[in-house]
Design a protein around this nucleic acid. Structure first.
Length: 714
RNA sequence: GGCGCGAUAGCUCAGCUGGUUAGAGCGUGCGAUUCAUAAUCGCAAGGUCGCGAGUUCAAGUCUCGCUCGCGCUACCA
């Protein structure tokens, strides 16, 4: 057993709110694991924070006409608040825009540089002086040196298929500003992943690094190992760790060539775990280093399956290259959660947003947690449905768990005025664990002990669904205990037996008040109050009751006065569920509960044009006749469009938003005199005009029904 | 296109290194019961383990091919 634990949950990207897929994938399993470790008295730090850098945030800011800082400030607040409400108990929720993080990342970069971990490469790249930035290959157009096509891209000519580099182009132009880009030398630092391939392969597959056995690969999930080996088998390539961007952590200024350079977000983000730990240590008067540098620390990363290679290969390579840091002992990545038969989709608003759930179901945070655990995508993708949510709540939480607690407390108040009865240990009764079996008090306590251990084993193996099932078995056995012994019948004739049964049932409830804590923290607190037991300190409480149980001692002593019973969970009605289902996919995209009142951010106006500019465009009405998916392409649909006087073939990048069937027959508006462009071997003869909102959702722009095709739009 | 993971009862999912009648929870049917939020307990029915070959005395479990879903990557906006 390790001496201490450092547990991380994937840093959520600060450009949107949290949905149930995030919760079930990373945060809830991490939270359960950590709460359990705390209950067992282990030394554990649980860190997370907002990932606030990267091009996507810049793009979003530009789209909404605001600054990157405003975007990240807004979502950082939202995320932090949501985690608190749903009971994810981070020791710290940090952010990568914090100065301590910038320093930590830069120190890391310097150390890697000193150690020779980087390959430096200076290349001449095109720079747009008006836009003030280096241009990705794709953002440069010019004449193809091979076939003289005037619209070749910086990486490839679509017409003749030649692979190009931007400097091959004749008369290059920037697609951002239209200006002529100039060549400037730019230096980037590449992590020599190729040099790490050998030890990574051994470490992933045997758990051995530097001759030391660090973990057992059999404990890692199949899909995690599979994904890693898939990468290793293809050969690791040096990977750029810097970017020409204006939003992010600066490459340390004293390094030559650092001007205008930022750290690649995937270097910066995982270091966020470290800087968060540092900040936590500062806030709490602790030393952060043992948590990251000591062999007797277990480092565990909770993530979704899309992050596997970064956490299992690239970040470990970075840690190893640095030299002082330990490697993760497991990365229990989960798969994805689907919703009502479909993938979660932010742009289609096909999601359950956690902050909206908390607003719609106040005081029922644990119901969502319970459902997420039941449906946790531990080995394969899984599915959440609102109907299932309702059934689970009503059948398992209300009927089984809450009802058990309630009937025990009601009976105790009725027969013993709410005082735990003293008992004769030698009394026989019927065990709740098996039909027609005589139980003894000591045996039952030992069975409870066994169940708690079983729960713990499953949690330590990251089998959270199974662990929850074990806990619910305790509640079921408690119900059976009452059912088999029927105290409401036997209390007159066999009062001593009934005392034992109810005393024992109370021990079941007391055990549950601790056992449900990792899964249902809010309910655990409520239950403790009902039992008048005092809130859990999350410091070895479970270990303490295990020690009592193994000695054959009860958790609640005779003469302890119970509190008042209240309903731990309530039924959820059909109407409530129907309302939630109706919300799904509603045209209103998820509105972030902004720190300030929400204000829709519109894209800034483009520069003024003259009527002549407009008149050059030949825009016409049309109708989609046929549609099919383009082979090998995710985004393109191949459409044939009737323009009245002729039929055009048009490729449109809408395949992720519309199926071919649903667009056939649509009336559309077409930019008809756009120069034809070949894409994926097919020439596109025009462009379908679409409306796009700030979430990226698309809508056709159409004339009135039945409007004839081929006529002008002006 | 390349690679990875998944496909098991009506639903949601377990099944480790191949071995007797394939499991759980929920739902369904029947019975018992009333302390409890019409809750609980017992019993039962339900599966040619995605499709097709193969290896083996023996395959849900191994090999190959195929189909579908998801992810990574390439390509494409």
């Amino acid at each position: 057993m390790k001496k201490r634990y450092l547990v991380t949950a994937a840093l959520p990207y600060a450009n949107g709110p949290l949905h149930i897929g995030h919760l079930a994938g990373a945060y809830l399993p991490a939270d359960i694991y950590v709460r359990y470790l705390r209950l067992m008295g282990r030394d554990v730090v649980f860190v997370c924070g907002s990932d606030e850098h990267g091009a996507a945030i810049t793009v979003k800011a530009r789209k909404e006409g605001t600054t990157p800082q405003a975007i990240v400030d807004q979502y950082h607040t939202v995320l932090k608040d949501t985690f608190e409400k749903i009971g994810i108990g981070f020791d710290i929720y940090h952010r990568t825009s914090a100065p301590i993080h910038h320093q930590t990342s830069q120190d890391f970069f310097r150390k890697l540089l000193d150690k020779g971990a980087f390959l430096e490469e200076t290349t001449e790249q095109y720079f747009d002086e008006i836009a003030g930035q280096f241009l990705a290959d794709r953002y440069i157009v010019g004449t193809c040196p091979v076939c003289a096509n005037p619209e070749a891209y910086g990486d490839q000519c679509e017409k003749c298929g030649s692979a190009l580099s931007p400097t091959d182009l004749i008369n290059p132009k920037s697609m951002l500003s239209g200006s002529v880009p100039v060549k400037r030398p730019t230096k980037h630092w590449f992590l020599r992943l190729d040099q790490h391939e050998a030890w990574l392969r051994e470490w992933i597959n045997t758990g051995v690094a530097d001759g030391k056995k660090l973990h057992n690969p059999a404990d890692w999930k199949n899909h995690v190992l599979g994904q890693c080996n898939s990468w290793l088998d293809q050969g690791l390539q040096p990977r750029a760790m810097t970017r020409d961007l204006d939003w992010g952590v600066d490459v340390p200024q004293e390094i030559p060539g650092s001007e205008g350079k930022k750290l690649y977000v995937w270097l910066d983000a995982p270091i966020g775990y470290i800087s968060a730990t540092k900040q936590w240590a500062l806030d709490n008067g602790k030393d952060w280093e043992p948590y990251w540098k000591s062999d007797d620390t277990a480092l565990v990363h909770f993530i979704g399956k899309d992050n596997i290679v970064f956490h299992c290969l690239i970040f470990p390579a970075i840690l190893k290259a640095h030299g002082d840091f330990i490697l993760p002992c497991n990365v229990p990545a989960n798969q994805f959660l689907n919703l009502e038969g479909r993938k979660l989709s932010t742009s289609k608003n096909w999601a359950v947003w956690v902050h909206e759930y908390c607003a719609d179901f106040p005081g029922q945070e644990d119901v969502l947690r319970y459902n997420m655990i039941k449906k946790m995508p531990e080995q394969s993708d899984s599915e959440f449905t609102w109907k299932g949510f309702q059934e689970t709540n009503n059948n398992e939480l209300v009927n089984n768990l809450a009802n058990f607690v309630n009937r025990v407390l009601v009976l105790s108040h009725k027969y013993y005025a709410g005082i735990v009865p003293a008992i004769d240990h030698d009394q026989d009764f019927k065990s709740g664990w098996e039909t027609d079996k005589t139980g003894s008090y000591d045996q039952e306590l030992s069975l409870l002990y066994g169940k708690l251990r079983e729960m713990g084993t499953e949690i330590e193996r990251f089998n959270f669904r199974e662990a929850l099932r074990v806990v619910m078995e305790i509640s079921s056995a408690g119900n059976a205990l009452l059912q088999f012994n029927e105290p409401w019948k036997t209390v007159k004739d066999e009062p001593e037996m009934v005392k034992v049964v109810l005393n024992l049932a109370l021990q079941y409830v007391a055990v549950l008040s601790v056992a449900i804590r990792p899964f249902l923290p809010f309910s655990a607190d409520r239950l403790r109050k009902m039992l008048n037991l005092g809130l859990l300190r999350d410091k070895g409480d479970l270990l303490a009751i295990l020690n009592e149980l193994v000695e054959g001692n009860p958790i609640m002593l005779p003469n302890h006065a119970l509190g008042q019973s209240e309903h731990l969970f309530s039924r959820i009605s059909d109407e409530v569920i129907e309302a939630q289902i109706a919300k799904l996919g509603a045209s209103e995209p998820a509105s972030a509960p902004a720190a300030e009142p929400t204000e829709i951010q519109y894209a800034p106006m483009k520069e003024t044009i003259q009527f002549d500019d407009f008149a050059k465009m030949d825009i016409r009405t049309g109708k989609i006749l046929t549609a099919e998916k383009m082979e090998k392409s995710k985004k393109l649909l191949k459409l044939s469009v009737d323009l009245g006087f002729e039929t055009r073939t048009i490729l449109s990048g809408i395949a992720e938003h519309f199926s071919p069937e649903e667009v056939v027959g649509k009336q559309v508006v077409v930019l008809a005199n756009l120069a034809p462009r070949p894409m994926m071997g097919v020439e596109s003869q025009g462009m379908i005009l679409m409306a796009e909102n700030e979430q990226g959702a698309l809508s056709f722009v159409s004339p009135a029904d039945g409007w004839p095709s081929g006529f002008g739009v002006r």
